[in-house]
Computed example of a mutant assay.
Amino acid sequence: MQRLGSMIHQLARYRSQWEGLMRAAATNEAPLEPLKTALQRLVETENFGVNPGNLRMFTYAPPELASSPGLVVVLHGCTQNAAGYDLGSGWSVLAERYGFVVLFPEQRETNNPKRCFNWFQTGDTERDRGEVASIREMVEIAIRKHGIDRDRVFVTGLSAGGAMTAAMLATYPEVFAGGAIIAGLPYRCATSVSEAFECMFQGQTRPAGEWGDLVRQASRHRGPWPKVSVWHGSADATVKPINAGEIIKQWTDVHGLSTSASRSETVDGYPRRVWVNDAGEDVIEEYIISGMAHGTPLATGNDENHYGVAGPFLIEVGISSSYHIAKFWGLTGSIVSQHKPSLRAESLADGQARTRQEDRRGRGKDVPSPIPNVGGVIVRALKAAGLMR
């Protein structure tokens, strides 16, 4: 009983810290509600196929695609939705300018009350199971519908979406040519709620070989491996920056590289480290954004390489992570649209309310997830923290 009491106390402390950070971000960042968005740009595909994770599927395909178009899967963070994260990150605007397709899986509140992807649940992060299987199914649908080049499929995400990006790269490495993990965590850093909190707020240190083994054990794939871009704020109090270093250890080991970078440089005022393979290809990059809290780095405005709109967890720091990630993947080689597309007007607040209303109506069948039998008080605490369905 003493151990149970200690566990409850620790989880309550983590929950309080988590909710405080969520409130602070919503208060301190410029609100997105007054801004205009292109919610109409995203098209939902209902009943898209096998969906064990009970997720929603949204896509944007620009009017004109590049030859051999690419596909970028974009995973939002906790408390966000597909349309809001698209507006903030600028991915559909990038897609229209460079002629690729974007796919936005969206979490349901019935799966996670904070709309976090369940990156810490083994049933959602093992190949052909749960949420990763649903996202893989969406990718296949998008590839077939839009004539996507299978060698140009990528995935990125923020926070819980970043951790789920790591899961997609580990469980389906043959599907993705590259991934970008923003304020995320290494694959299999956590396989329980308590471990999830510990990884976020403290970090977990392991030898590179152990991290790499977790990826190698996730599938039968033995290479080639996806390129990986890692972004993290040095002042992130929600997901500690130590996680960026552990992600680097995991993927340098998978690629058979030293943890020491091949070269270092400065991009838009921030340090960039690069790892190069034996073929001379840049296969891993890392940006640590000095002074930035938890969120996606943005450079907003009308300049050539500026994309997105600042808001909660979408932070103006003078560098567009979305643009530089797309460039790292080779998606910015040729411009399809000579002018940056304008977004049609609808408030994000209206769109988020509409999404929540549709979520409560439960498009498709909401599949309940089993709750561990660890006592009602623990279950209620974890649900309230958004870390259990």
Rank of each mutant, 00 (worst) to 15 (best):
residue 34 P to G: 08
residue 101 V to A: 03
residue 265 E to K: 14
residue 268 D to A: 14
residue 178 G to N: 03
residue 304 E to Q: 11
residue 22 M to Q: 14
residue 356 R to M: 15
residue 335 I to T: 11
residue 101 V to Q: 03
residue 352 Q to S: 11
residue 33 E to K: 08
residue 22 M to F: 14
residue 323 Y to L: 01
residue 267 V to S: 07
residue 45 T to W: 15
residue 290 S to T: 11
residue 158 L to N: 00
residue 355 T to Y: 09
residue 105 P to W: 02
residue 147 G to Y: 08
residue 244 A to T: 02
residue 2 Q to V: 11
residue 176 F to M: 08
residue 128 D to A: 10
residue 297 P to M: 04
residue 4 L to P: 03
residue 70 G to P: 05
residue 96 E to I: 07
residue 160 A to K: 01
residue 150 R to F: 10
residue 259 T to P: 06
residue 38 A to I: 10
residue 177 A to Y: 08
residue 362 G to R: 06
residue 338 Q to D: 12
residue 249 K to N: 03
residue 49 G to F: 12
residue 300 T to K: 02
residue 184 G to K: 00
residue 42 L to H: 05
residue 152 R to N: 03
residue 57 M to F: 15
residue 321 S to I: 04
residue 41 R to Q: 13
residue 284 I to M: 02
residue 156 T to H: 02
residue 61 A to Y: 01
residue 165 T to G: 05
residue 222 R to V: 12
residue 15 R to A: 09
residue 263 R to W: 08
residue 222 R to Q: 10
residue 47 N to E: 15
residue 72 V to R: 00
residue 369 S to C: 12
residue 86 D to E: 08
residue 58 F to I: 09
residue 215 V to A: 00
residue 122 T to D: 14
residue 315 I to E: 02
residue 302 N to I: 15
residue 125 T to W: 00
residue 244 A to F: 02
residue 267 V to L: 15
residue 346 E to P: 03
residue 150 R to K: 15
residue 7 M to C: 06
residue 315 I to S: 02
residue 257 L to T: 06
residue 331 L to S: 00
residue 259 T to R: 08
residue 328 F to A: 02
residue 37 T to D: 07
residue 41 R to N: 13
residue 5 G to N: 13
residue 373 N to L: 12
residue 179 G to K: 03
residue 108 R to E: 04
residue 323 Y to P: 02
residue 367 V to T: 12
residue 340 K to Q: 10
residue 93 V to G: 05
residue 83 A to T: 06
residue 382 L to V: 06
residue 379 V to N: 13
residue 5 G to A: 13
residue 310 A to P: 05
residue 173 P to R: 04
residue 384 A to C: 13
residue 166 A to E: 06
residue 55 L to D: 01
residue 246 E to F: 04
residue 267 V to D: 11
residue 28 N to G: 10
residue 195 E to I: 08
residue 250 Q to E: 11
residue 52 P to K: 04
residue 141 I to P: 00
residue 204 Q to K: 10
residue 97 R to I: 07
residue 161 G to F: 05
residue 343 L to A: 09
residue 214 L to V: 10
residue 104 F to N: 04
residue 332 T to Y: 01
residue 253 D to N: 08
residue 205 T to S: 14
